[in-house]
């Protein structure tokens, strides 16, 4: 189960995970439940129908199948399975009964979606082997995941006996077993991390198995800490000297006191000048690059500090953490394969 706050890229991570799990000739099923056709967009294919179809081949010959579960269709299947409705089912659909049933009771939708996924998990071929080695669900967002997965507990409580009760219990057995893991996708930003922390607490108290946290869209560190400290030092010195306010190139800038900050600035201008970026005298081209470059550095340092704080919160959860780098081109199919290789290298299959 892959969940996450909106905008964190949970569909991409779910797809990358399905690809990684399809390694070495295995077969996985990637399931979508929110009717957004995100999987089709990701794999650059047409909208998925309500049937399992092969969507990608993984490294080493494994296969990824995909399924977009449609709650209305799933309800008809369900009624067919337990009550042999026949053509009456279609008539019910026509007068809006199915729509009624799936929209009016939010829980019913979730029963059908989780039920269908669990059916795929348990399905076996004629030789008794599992049809899918793994099923990956692009699940509802973090805010709704616990209710979504826990809904069968409620149903099992409502329907005390009979096929519905048995079905609900079987689904819960799968979801709470060691075979299931809920992975939470987050960014190193305040709100997604807060939702992740809350989501993990909710899942744990509902007895649902939490797998890992996937930190998505991370960026490589481009400045080391010592350099950042120097930049910070320069901020203080620069502010004290008032160089930020003085228009560069004027006499005042030229005569700016050479404190620690001034020295660092001059050194930077000199370094830039040495690699052909213009003159390093005050007001020269290299010198004029220094202040805006430092400003960018300070913004970066600020963001890095925020990210560190978020990382610390994630670490406190005591879960395995995987990191996926930001895709330079906004995520195409090649990027997806790169992400899946990255997950595999980080040991997600263990």
């Amino acid at each position: 189960m892959v969940t996450g706050k909106g905008g964190t890229g949970k569909t991409t991570v779910a797809a990358a995970l399905a690809l990684a799990l399809a390694d070495e000739g295995r077969r996985t099923l990637l399931v979508e439940v929110e009717g957004r056709q995100g999987i089709a967009q990701l794999f650059e294919t047409q909208a998925l129908p309500y049937e399992e179809r092969k969507i990608a081949v993984a490294y080493g010959g494994g296969e990824v199948y995909a399924l977009a579960i449609d709650a209305e269709r799933a309800l008809l299947d369900y009624l067919q399975m337990f009550y042999k409705l026949g053509s009456a089912g279609r008539a019910l659909n026509k007068i809006g009964a199915i729509d009624f049933a799936t929209t009016v009771a939010p829980g019913l939708r979730d029963v059908l979606l989780t039920g269908k996924a669990c059916e795929a998990v348990r399905r076996r071929d004629r030789k008794g082997r599992r049809v899918y080695d793994a099923v990956v669900m692009d699940a509802p967002p973090t805010g709704r995941i616990t209710r979504f997965l826990g809904v069968n507990d409620e149903v099992a409580g409502l329907a005390k006996i009979g096929p519905v009760h048995n079905q609900a219990q079987a689904v819960m057995r799968v979801l709470k077993s060691a075979e299931t893991a809920v992975h939470l996708v987050t960014l190193l930003e305040e709100m997604p991390v807060q939702e992740t922390v809350d989501g993990v607490a909710e899942l744990r108290s509902a007895g649902l198995p939490v797998g890992s946290v996937v930190v998505n869209m991370t960026r490589p560190q481009l400045l080391d800490t010592a350099a950042l400290d120097t930049a910070a030092l320069d901020t203080a010195a620069g502010a004290a000297a008032g160089t930020g306010e003085v228009p560069v190139g004027t006499a005042e800038a030229a005569e700016a006191p050479l404190g620690a900050g001034g020295g660092a600035r001059a050194g930077l201008a000199h370094a830039l000048s040495r690699v052909g970026l213009g003159g390093d005298r005050p007001g020269g081209r290299a010198d004029r690059l220094v202040e805006p470059l430092l400003r960018q550095g300070r913004e970066y340092a600020e963001r890095l500090a925020l990210e560190r704080a978020q990382r610390a919160e994630i670490d406190e959860l005591g879960l395995p953490v995987y990191e996926l780098g930001l895709l330079a081109d906004g995520g195409d199919l090649a990027g997806l394969y790169a992400l899946s290789a990255d997950l595999r290298d980080q040991g997600v299959l263990k």
Binding site: R219, L222, L223, D224, A226, A227, T230, A231, G263, A264, G267, L268, H270, A271, L272, L293, L294, Q296, G297, Y300
Partner: peptide, 21 residues
């Protein structure tokens, strides 16, 4: 400048940061 190496590194880092931006 005795801080030359550190300054050079900082300058390189700032330039890489800028390239990324």
């Amino acid at each position: 400048n005795s801080d030359g190496a550190a300054t050079t590194l900082l300058a390189a880092g700032l330039l890489r940061l800028h390239a990324e931006r």
